[in-house]
Design a protein around this nucleic acid. Structure first.
Lengths: 206, 206
DNA sequence: GTCTATAATTAGATAGAC
DNA sequence: GTCTATCTAATTATAGAC
């Protein structure tokens, strides 16, 4: 049916159809790569989850590697818009706390982020280099400029601060099924997210 | 040559040979699973890294799944001995700080730990359940008894504390190649490890 | 655009020589 | 015990029908 619809519809409708299919594939790719890693995720399963077939992935994305990049572009695009829309005003310390809470909320909404970092950050291969240069370095630079403004963190401690913040803020959400089983706490619940946000914010800025 | 040696040696020498081979395979499995995840690591590559062949893995471990369990047993065995050998005396607060530093040093020496947690903690499958019940829950219980003794942490915050501590303490080491590329800091250096240990200890207990 | 069929690799597990 | 050869199944990428 989708094929027939696209074939008989106006040109711009076909373009919309194309875009909708691409987006369904990317959404399925994000879920599957996050769950099973790059190697563990098969293009057949991604296609099945997107409600289409494996041949279409090659048609739209050329290769599994290119699909992975499209998935990462999407996730970090979300992060970028969230990050740029941060509030200011109030006193600097409370502004910084709110930025941390805001990061934790993002990590809760997108637990895939840490999984992609851990999955790719360990191998010194091409995917890791691309991920760092394209997406992580700009966010790291953002953080650097903000901490200089307010906290007076020594430059040498910035890497430690960055990875401690990312790890403390997002691990619980990235291993949510494990956390549920281990502790009984469901970290996807709104209440748990706010508790974690406040916990991490007060940890870093008591 | 190893075959000939084993065939002509005394029985106990053959048993030693057997054990040595098993250990080489497990060591290679830890590295490979940590780098590429369960699905991404092939038994052929593990065998090659261990200096042997794929058939021997089946002989010694029956299946890839059983080899993975042997690898995890080994890693968490290291953690258990490290954890039980913690110092006491001094004042409770400084004892707790030293326990945190000690955890960070372990995470630096064994960055595979977080990778295994993140790789398996996301899927609600059999490997995750086994990992939690066999290895993670006992360590979580250890932590629970210790925090009760000293810090007066509310029971409800324990899950948040646990995952914040694990994430903050170990992420930088688990994505070491990424950290090097992003920040220029090599987190495998002794100096960087001590800085991170002190940073995290002071974060949690100022 | 979408889908089916298939080619070329590669995977884990097994069988049997030594 | 160790190793090579092979079986079956699954992988990505491609070709071509519609």
């Amino acid at each position: 049916m989708p094929a027939a619809k696209a074939a008989t519809a106006a040109p711009h409708a076909r373009a919309r159809q194309r875009e909708a299919t691409r987006e369904r594939i990317v959404a399925a790719a994000i879920d599957t790569f996050a769950e099973k890693g790059f190697r563990g995720a098969s293009t057949r399963e991604i296609a099945r989850r997107a409600g289409t077939n494996q041949g279409l992935i090659t048609y739209h994305f050329r290769s599994k590697d290119a699909l992975w990049r499209a998935a990462v572009d999407t996730i970090f695009g979300w992060l970028e818009s969230e990050w740029s829309a941060s509030p200011s005003g109030l006193d600097p310390r409370e502004t910084a706390r709110e930025a941390i809470r805001s990061w934790v909320r993002f990590a809760a909404a997108h637990p895939e982020l840490l999984r992609f970092m851990v999955n790719e950050g360990r191998e010194s291969d091409e995917r890791m280099r691309w991920l760092v240069e394209t997406h992580i370095r700009p966010r790291y630079a953002d953080l650097a400029s903000r901490t200089n403004e307010i906290a007076g963190l020594p430059e040498a401690l910035l890497p430690h601060f960055f990875y401690a913040l990312v790890g403390a803020g997002s691990l619980i959400f990235s291993v949510a099924p494990e956390c549920r089983r281990l502790t009984g706490l469901d970290p996807t619940r709104e209440e748990a997210i706010e508790t974690h946000a406040e916990f991490v914010a007060r940890l870093i800025l008591p």
